[in-house]
Design a protein around this nucleic acid. Structure first.
Length: 617
RNA sequence: GCCACGGUAGCUCAGCCGGUAGAGCGCGUGCUUGGUAAGCACGAGGUCGCGGGUUCAAAUCCCGCCCGUGGCUCCA
């Protein structure tokens, strides 16, 4: 709704001629003195709520200027996105009604050609315009979510289901934090999450203020780390048996199938206006993969059928205040694998396997089971029918699991698990997750031909083996921070460290020797750089340490003459006591390749000489 | 969306009872060539978020706006 408010000495109008949409009107016109005229255009999508807000705005202005009379005057020219006439009349009447409690309200008729004379008072507040927007479209699932009644339990390693209030959290402090976080959903923290400062200081990632919030920039080091994680998770899923595909980022908002799915997914979308159609940006790879599977000819022989895509990006228009650092973004990268399963038995087998796959993926990324807590969300019916299966999940990690149970199925799945990382501020966020989807095969018309020739609906598993890549980075940084608080030197896993080895020549005279060693390491696929800056040794050591370089090599006369290397090993050092070893280039290479075994490799993302590097902040 | 706080040099921030714009770090130049967490000196660098107001005079006070961060909410 658009409003143009004019505080006038008087406003006089005459109805001249009817249009097709004219509302009945007997008189010839009207005149009101000392009036606040509200020229009003009702727009598409305007609802009762919008009218209410408009009335509040008008009331506020009227009070400010001291007007006691209001004339609601339909004025289509304020908008190029008008509602239909019936709605407009209805809304205009409603607006007048709304205002009539506090003011003397007049209303000019809708749908007539009218002439008018207005005498604007001309003081600073006498001409104002307002745009009133409705609440953004909220999906049914978001509304449903508010009504969900949850029952909370702990599934113990002994496979007992205990009410949360009766469970003793002794020895499970992290689980307690997680449960608190989940159930209370409240937190008072006045600190910036530690990973935000780290991602900036280490020149990994940063806010991009020229974009929407939650869309980050990744500096060379950050891009390297992200790229390695992306490659690694993709390789793990492909190795697990998934076929990698690529699907579009945006889809028709009014496509009947997709529309229904949107309604079932409690997330806010970005909307893109096209020429004829409106599009939404995908929040996961479901859309493209389901459409692909819907068109495919699939038989029981092809099942379980796994399809995978790394979404760069998934978009979710999270509420303003919940977007923070790398924890929660509006554009993020997620490994998204969907498995078609023949029947519930196969679905359960896959669920279990993917649970284990997720444990393994996180472990190799550098996140151990003690770094996260497991949650299972399940409908009561599914739980009762599959108790033994649900309980069997506890065998994998042998630690208690938080169980959230629902009376009825609000969402598209009957069972899901999540691995939740608990950060330095005791906030939890989900990493890996798998869900058993019982709805979308039907909705997307996905079917397979069974042995007897009949067409059947498969179950669909949604699996994000690591969770969002950015969130993995957040977890690694938060973990490093918590390590530091415990007195350990913070660092990233060696395979993810942008610089794995830094060579520091003791003086300019040893720069060539340093370059020679560096070349040897580089050829062996070690990310090595050389601090050739004109700085003191102490300064260079300090800088290398502040960058979390895992291996610092100091090279001087002793080393060149003796043919060895002096290496400071970060993982075995503390702030007080550096662990320094004598070794050879070959030994260092083999140690690093051992630490990076099975992980992807990418070369140094920056010039090898520190003097040639820009500083990004 | 709500609440709080903030926006001054590349970064972190000081200045804010109005009176010529500051520090540290970083950057550049020179000295220095070092043995394991900050060498020394000099120099460059600013539309004090934007618009209005008050005033002889505004980074500073007032009003409006924009942007950001944190919290709430939410978190599939």
């Amino acid at each position: 709704m658009k409003l143009l408010l004019i505080h006038a000495d008087f406003m006089e109008y005459r109805v001249e001629k009817k249009t097709k949409v004219a509302e009945p009107f007997e008189s010839e016109g009207g005149r009101v003195d000392d009036v606040l005229v509200a020229f009003t255009a009702v727009e598409k999508g305007d609802s009762e709520a919008v009218v209410e807000k408009a009335a509040e705005e008008i009331t506020e202005v009227a009070k400010k200027v001291g007007a006691e009379k209001i004339l609601v005057y339909p004025y289509a020219h304020l908008s190029s996105n008008l509602s239909d006439p019936e709605t407009a009349v209805r809304m205009l009447k409603l607006l007048a009604d709304n205002l009539s409690n506090s003011f003397e309200v007049h209303r000019a008729p809708f749908g007539w050609y009218k002439s008018f004379t207005i005498s604007c008072k001309g003081h600073p507040l006498s001409e104002l315009s307002r745009e009133i927007k409705g609440e953004e479209e909220v999906t049914q699932a978001l509304k449903d979510e508010e009504e969900v009644v949850s029952y909370w339990y702990i599934l113990t390693p002994e496979k007992e289901l205990v009410e949360v209030s009766k469970f003793s959290f002794e020895g499970y402090e992290n689980l307690k934090k997680f449960v608190n976080y989940e159930m209370a959903k409240k937190r008072a923290v006045d600190r910036i999450p530690p990973h935000v400062e780290l991602m900036q200081r280490l020149q990994i990632a940063d806010y991009e203020e020229a974009s929407d919030s939650g869309h980050m920039r990744y500096y060379p080091k950050g891009r390297l780390i992200k790229s390695l994680l992306e490659t690694f998770v993709t390789e793990k899923c492909v190795e697990y048996g998934a076929m990698e595909v690529e699907t579009p980022l945006m889809y028709d908002r009014n496509h009947p199938t997709l529309r229904k799915y949107l309604e079932r997914f409690p997330a806010r979308q970005y909307i893109i206006k096209g020429d004829k159609r409106d599009f939404f940006l995908r929040f996961a790879a479901c859309f493209g993969q389901f459409l692909m599977k819907s068109d495919a000819v699939i038989t029981y022989r092809n099942l379980p059928l796994k399809m995978y895509e790394l979404t760069r990006y998934s978009f979710r228009k999270e509420q303003r205040g919940e977007v923070v650092g790398l924890r929660r973004l509006r554009a993020f990268t997620m490994p998204d694998m969907h498995t078609l399963a023949k029947d519930m038995d196969q679905a359960k087998r896959e669920f279990f396997d993917q649970y284990r796959l997720s444990v393994e993926v996180l472990k190799e990324i550098g996140l151990e089971p003690e770094d996260y807590e497991v949650a299972i969300r399940v409908t009561k019916d599914f739980y009762n029918e599959n108790k033994e299966f649900v309980h069997s999940l506890v065998d994998v990690l042998k630690k208690p699991i938080l169980v959230e149970m629902w009376d009825r199925r609000f969402f598209y799945f009957v069972l899901k698990f999540e691995f939740n990382f608990v950060d330095a501020l005791d906030k939890a966020s989900a990493l890996s997750t798998v869900q058993i989807d019982v709805e979308n095969a039907e909705r997307y018309d996905i079917s397979y031909v069974d042995e007897d020739g009949s067409r059947k609906r498969p179950y669909i598993l949604h699996c994000s083996a690591s969770g969002a890549i950015e969130r993995c980075m957040y977890a690694l940084l938060e973990k490093a921070h918590m390590d530091a608080e415990k007195g350990k030197l913070p660092m990233l896993p060696v395979w993810l460290s942008p610089t794995q080895v830094r060579i520091i020549p003791i003086s300019r005279a040893f720069l060539d020797a340093a370059l020679e060693v560096a070349e040897k390491l580089r050829k062996a696929r070690v990310r090595v750089d050389v601090d050739d800056r004109d700085e003191t040794l102490g300064k260079k050591i300090r800088d290398a340490a502040r960058e979390w370089v895992p291996y610092i090599v100091v090279l001087g006369e002793e080393e060149v003459k003796g043919g060895f290397m002096t290496v400071t090993v970060r993982a075995e050092s503390t702030l007080e006591q550096q662990k320094r070893v004598r070794t050879t280039a070959e030994e260092l290479i083999s140690r690093i390749s051992e630490e990076c075994r099975g992980k992807p490799y990418k070369p140094l993302p920056l010039p090898m000489l520190l003097s040639e590097r820009p500083s990004f902040r």
